[in-house]
Design a protein around this nucleic acid. Structure first.
Lengths: 253, 253
DNA sequence: CGGTTGTTTGACGCAGTTCAAGCGGAGTGG
DNA sequence: CCACTCCGCTTGAACTGCGTCAAACAACCG
């Protein structure tokens, strides 16, 4: 959702009220993409930056032999193709895992907004850095963690991020992801993901099925995945605490 | 080197002459770090951004059991801890693989420079995005490539980047990296790296030893690693071709 | 010349892959 | 309402790429 983006950006660099208004006004319209379709394709030069309003998507690359690697999940409030604005051509694709609702801002309009509020450039830069931080954590997982630990870690990440945007209270959440998609995220085979998922359930940590994830033992799951949420840069403490008065939008906790 | 940084940043967004001068003037002093030492540590809050002038370094994270994952190599002209400037605390360490010579710019000074030349913010943002692009390519390697292909790919990357800064003509280059360090980069064991390296030599593609890398068959190596250099964002075509007159520093090719 | 650090080799084991087949639920059309 | 079909999940058996352990070797350095 738009408000999730605003809150996230604000957590990076304490936006001013006009900046917040600008971000809110930037994104207009909404488009729907059915599950399985691509939102942007590798090599594409798009003319706008998209924002996920609803649904679940993923970044991925396909190799010559057809196998693919998923490199990150996109949740409501995430920006899809900021890369496209800065670098031109996309170097990876983004696909909808579930039906998605998107909003978008034309590059030109974004450009104008950034001219008018130069501070927002730094904010978006911070957003890109946060994405890099997640990619690095995934590198550690793929390189050095066992399948068991890797899956646990990924599930922790998804839950933590969903919690941050109010999509779960921490015990149950919608997660209509196939085991093949998990396998493509984790660099594993479908068959092995299936077996490890059963082990995780047998251990009483989580169960995943019928499009839903149930966390039975959050602490145990975190331990199994050696999960430390700081790399997600959620709720970063602001260094300059510009007071944002009268926003009327204070977070609950 | 400083000029490599300037050239690279310029390739992202066509710097103006004053911007170039500012970048050149920003970095002062030089410090030496012996091989094996850390340049910055995870969790550290440094007060300046470092630049590699000479030597080879790597980003890495260490896991609780002591195993580590290297997440990227740093060559002369690369910025070490731009993250630190934006995000505060480092979420990973950077270690010197060989003796390194560094220059640095205090955060405050960088801040002032960016205030004075707001365009540079976008340039550094682009630099961060390029780093993210490399991380994503590594993800594909760790997730979906065989050990053989992974090593070939990594060697291609190093050669391509060294070529870009004049550290090799493409056939031989200094690469004083241990097989353990390669293993930590590729998510493999030391022993396996050793054996695959022998296979690569037997195939007549490359040989690595005594601190040097010899490429015997570049095309073959690229094929083995399915290497496509575009993700490195070297020599990106500038979208706005501001003419930079009389720099007297034109690249040879 | 001895110690230290990096490389090489061999034997063995296992985590994870591949192949192949069966199962179950959800949607669709007759 | 039943059959048919698709898609995703599950299971078993065989295989293998890569890891682990352990020891020998080579190169470098003070």
């Amino acid at each position: 959702m738009l408000e999730h983006l605003v809150r996230r950006l604000d957590s990076f660099s304490a936006l001013s009220e006009p900046e917040i208004q600008t971000v809110r006004a930037m994104f207009t319209g909404s488009r729907r993409v059915p599950a399985g379709d691509d939102i942007v394709c590798e090599g594409e030069v798009s003319a706008s930056v998209s924002l996920i309003l609803e649904g679940l998507a993923c970044r991925y690359k396909t190799m010559s032999d057809g196998r693919r690697q998923i490199m990150g999940f996109l949740l409501p409030g995430d920006l899809v193709d900021l890369h496209g604005y800065m670098a031109g051509e996309m170097d990876h694709s983004v696909g909808a895992l579930t039906p998605c609702k998107l909003s978008a801002v034309p590059h030109q309009k974004l450009h104008d907004a950034l001219e008018q509020h130069p501070g927002l450039v730094r904010t978006l830069w911070a957003e890109s850095l946060a994405e890099g931080s997640v990619a690095r954590e995934w590198l550690v997982g793929l390189g050095r963690r066992s399948a068991y630990s890797r899956i646990a870690h990924l599930l922790c990440e998804v839950v933590a991020r969903m919690k941050a945007i109010g999509l779960t209270d921490g015990s149950v959440c919608d997660l209509p992801v196939t085991q093949q998609e998990l396998a493509d995220s984790l660099g594993l085979s479908l068959v092995h993901v299936n077996r490890v998922l059963q082990r995780l359930r047998a251990s009483g940590l989580v169960s995943l099925g019928r499009g839903a994830l149930q966390v039975h033992d959050w602490d145990g799951l975190q331990q199994a995945g050696e999960f430390d949420p700081s790399y997600l840069k959620i709720n970063v403490i602001k260094r300059l605490s510009k007071s944002i008065s009268g926003s009327g939008n204070l977070p609950r906790d």
